[in-house]
Every structure is written in C-alpha cells, then in structure tokens.
Design a binder for these strands. Sequence first.
DNA 1: CTGAAAGCGCTTACAG
DNA 2: CTGAAAGCGCTTACAG
Lengths: 330, 330
Amino acid sequence: MPTITDVCKLAGVSKATVSRVINGTGQVKESTRKVVFDAMETLQYRPNSLAQALANNKSNSIGLILSTFDGNYFGSLLREATNVAHDAGMQLIVTDGRNDTKLEIEAVNSLVDRRCDVIILYSRSLSEQDFADLKARISVPIVVINRCLKDQYSNAVCFDQQFATQLAMNHLLQKGHRDIACISLSLQSQTGQLRQQAYQQTLIEAGIEINPALLVEGDSQLGTGYQCCQKLIESGSPFSAIFACNDDMAIGAIKALHDAGIKVPEQCAVIGIDNEPLGQYIEPQLSSVELPIKAITHAAMQMALALAKGEATSTGTQEFRGKLVVRAST
Amino acid sequence: MPTITDVCKLAGVSKATVSRVINGTGQVKESTRKVVFDAMETLQYRPNSLAQALANNKSNSIGLILSTFDGNYFGSLLREATNVAHDAGMQLIVTDGRNDTKLEIEAVNSLVDRRCDVIILYSRSLSEQDFADLKARISVPIVVINRCLKDQYSNAVCFDQQFATQLAMNHLLQKGHRDIACISLSLQSQTGQLRQQAYQQTLIEAGIEINPALLVEGDSQLGTGYQCCQKLIESGSPFSAIFACNDDMAIGAIKALHDAGIKVPEQCAVIGIDNEPLGQYIEPQLSSVELPIKAITHAAMQMALALAKGEATSTGTQEFRGKLVVRAST
DNA sequence: CTGAAAGCGCTTACAG
DNA sequence: CTGAAAGCGCTTACAG
C-alpha cells in the first residue's frame, strides 16, 4: 500500500505538506494542494489510521462491549450504534463479553490497548464495584448501559426496571388478576433481580400474599419461557396471569399454555417486557412494556461522542422509562 | 498510560529487552525477565496495540462487514464470529454496511485503513463485479459470505440457495400442493433472485404453470410477510401453500392467514427457510429448511484466520447445504 | 544476554 | 506557504 512518503515523492513536496492537505489544516497554496491531490489520486493513497492514531493519540473509535448478541434487542442496539458512529465519522469496534465477567474485563482491556477513545459497556454480570474498579484503573472514559450508577461522575444510561415492572403488574392487577405468576430473568443479573423484586413488591402493595410456587427463574430465551411455564402448570398452584420478564419468554410461555390446552387470555393472561416487533405477529398478540432501546442506545452514543471529543468529562446518568402496550394477550 | 519507556526506566533496561519479554522472543536472562515483569506489573503496563500493529505491519484484527443486524440470523453469526476470533486471539471489528453498496465499500476502505489483516464481507447488494473490483484494488484478503464465487482464487463460503428452495418446494409438491404461492426476499439481492428462480424452476419441472399473481416480493421482515400474504389473499388467485423465502416472513404470513380465518396447515400450508428457533414456538410450529449459519460462519472465520496468518493465499469457495425440517405448518 | 539505532506511517511545533 | 526534525510507542536486525 502506498504511504505518505510515496505521495511526497510523486508530488515533490514534504510530508508536512501532504499531511496538511490530508487534514485540511494550515495553509497550502492552491496549486500545490492540487498537485498533492493528484498524486494521492493516482496512487490511490489512503492514510494509515493506525499511524494517525498513534501520532494523534486519538483513534476515532468507540469500543462497544455487549453481553450477548441474542435477539432483536441487541440487533436494534447495534443498528443504532453503528448508525450514530458512522454519522460521527467514528469506527465502532464491537466485542462480545459472552456474559462472563472475566471475558468482559478482558474485552475492556483489549479495547483500551487499542486506544479506543471511549468504551460503551453493556454488562449483565459486572457488579457496581467492578465498574468502580474499572473506572479507577483505566483512563479511557466508560459509558455504562443498563445500570443506574448513583455516582454523578459516572456515565450511564439505564432503564427504570421497577417502573416497567409496575406498569406490567398494575395492568394485570387492574384486570382483576390476583394469582400472578412470574417467569424471571436470570437472577444473576441485576436486571433480573430488580424486576423480580418489583414483581413481589407490587403484589405486597396490593395486599396479595406471595406464593413462591409462582416464581420461576428463566434465562431470557424462548426455550426457558416454555419450560418455566410448564413448571408453573405442573406445580398445581393456580394462576390466571403470567408476568414474563421479557417478550421472548412470554412467547415461549404462550406456546406452553397452548400446548397444555390453556387459552390465552381467557384462562391465562400473559404480558412481557421489551415490546419486540414479533409480539404483533404471534397469536394472540402480546401485551408488553416498550423498552426504548433505540433511544437508550442513542443517548449512550451521544454521551460516548461527547466524552470522546473531550466535550465532557462526565455526563451523569440518564434514565429511561417504558410504556405499556396492551394487546390481545391480556 | 504507561509506555514501554516507563517500564525501561523502572526496570533499568533497554526497550529491546522489554520488547523481548513482552513478546517472549529472543533470549532474556531469567533475573532480568523478572525485573521487567515486576516493573510492568507495578506500572500496570499494557502494550499499545496500535504501535505494535504499526511496527509489525500486522494488527491482529479481523474486519467484519454485515449488511444488517436484523434478526436471529445475524445474532448467531456474530456470536460464532466473536467466539472464534477470541479463541484465536484476534480482535473482531464489526461494521454495518446498512445494505447500501456505497456504505459497504466505504466500510471496506475504513477497515483497510485500519490495517485489518483480513476482511469478511457479508453483502446483499454488491455484485460479482464489485467483488472483483474490490479484490483487485485492495491488498487485504477478503472472505465473502453468502456468495458462491466461481473464481478459484476467491475466498468464499456460501449456501446452496437452489437446493434449499428445492427442498422446501419438493416437500410442498409431495404433499400434493399445486397452487403454491411465493413470498420472495427483495429481488435486489442475489439470494432473493436465486430463491425466486428456483421456486419457478421447481414448478416448471413439476409441470405446473407459473401464476404471476402468486409471486409477491417482500423484504425479509415479519411485517412484509404479513402484508404480502394479505395481497395474496386479496388477489383472489387460489393457493393451498405458501413458500416464504425466510422464516420471519413465514411467521408474518401465518399471522395474516390466521387473521383472515384461514387455517394452517389445513387450508394453507406454510414453509420458510432459516429454521430459526422461534419457529418452534409459534402456532402451528413452522416447517423450514435449516440454514447452518453457525457452520457457515465458522468456515468463513477459519478461512479468515488462515489468510490472516498467511497460511493460505486463497481458499476457494466452500458451499453448504440445508436440510428439511418438517413441523406442523405443512 | 543486552543495547543503540533505525524504522513503521503519520503529525506538529518551529524556522524560514 | 513550505520543509526539516522530533515525536507517537512499539519491533528488530545488528553489534558487542
């Protein structure tokens, strides 16, 4: 590949001059600018980003660490993130933390080694302490998605899990349900814990006794939604509604109910969280709580860009709320 | 961040020595190795990957360009790709071509600028000529997914679209269907064209006249599956089966049939392609053709690694075939 | 076994 | 307006 030196030779100018025309900085006589452009053109020259990054101490890249690539949810996130990055002229470097604390930290390190200007971290497994440690250890700013960090010097965008759960639960309560089962996310994750706690709290506040048999733990996949629902049915404890902590599990649950000959919503109502597009194409259409993943991602990217450009040193935490979407399943 | 120079000072040795212990190359006395390790440890030193890449003319990274992040399909691809990359100690840099020729070429350029060791390109819009041009222009090896390039010097892994379509169509024909509608992918994409052609060809070979009213073009989303199916119903042309060119559209179609009071499979059979997990959780369960996306991605990554390491200069084309998965919808 | 020096491809004060 | 030189943080022959 041609280097700046090749361009220099062909154009008969110094590197400084070529660099100036590449970057549009400083003064360059129009005629020599033309000569340089022509040389770059005929050589098909493109600057080496690595060298630029090294010289500038700035790589024009945003590191993004995801805990998984599953489902529509992360697809939306990635789409939005790549769009914003592209429009800002930044490269997005995506890594999979594979839902594993060690791998996630490893991923952060390698992104730091690559001198990303900022890192966006979506982790299900890292604790608040882990975040604090990371922040103290590395000099690259970090934006955290899906965790509300109280610390005002942190950069985070999150979703009000408690509020979303209340929306779903109150909807079921209003419909007259008292025996409401819950298919939770993994209770290893903070999101899983928060939703499950809010589920219980809402029941308590409604004066309903908690029935442990009606709480089963899934892992957010269709398959566990199905299996968890089967367990609920087999448990023998009666229930007239299921609060599934995400749409995929809700869909799995609906299938299990169908297979057991239980009619939705007549014999059992089902609601999820996420409001995936898919919810509209199953039978019956799924009630859910919209999780504005696009807006959340957008906000995280804006924070990241501000941080990368040095326009801010910390952005605080921005919290988003869902809204109820009622369809035929409740 | 500490640099190699900081380590030198603290350890009282030269950069050459530090470099040797970082990379485990050359001879280093055990005692000085220890001193250097200690220095790196106390400084929390980590080598700057950009500088290493510049000096080595090798970045240890694989560029991956996707045409979209939609759906389970690309999630599987990304998961497999990140896993293989991680295990090989390579970074994966993921970019979204947004299904746009210009953006895809731009993405290739920027990956080349970043000196990726190899690029994997999944494009729906690039023509064979575009691939050839790219290959001629850039010096980084390219692996193409989802295109069967005849050229033996190319690196490609692809899916036998014709065979997959025949599997689905022959299954419907065997079930006695004669009036088979087709909801195609975008006919802008090569995959869309190939499946649609194979659909027609299979009919012709079975001695069935093609009814243009039974062919509608979708764009692979749930929503267009629904709308296309509505169009088919409204067209008035009778049909007893639908061949949807992917599962998402098949699911949309099933919903449209349901809403129109048409029973699946009794009054209309439906089959898709992809064998998404979701297909098992809708009612009725979806028949499909399995598309071994994980194996395909794995093969592409292996090619990429071989190319990146210089173990091969070209790998040729590797073709995969699907297999029929019959469930309740047909 | 270890270090001085040149080089990877860029940028940016500093002179002129 | 332009160029020589130093620097970004590494690696690697080459000497010793």
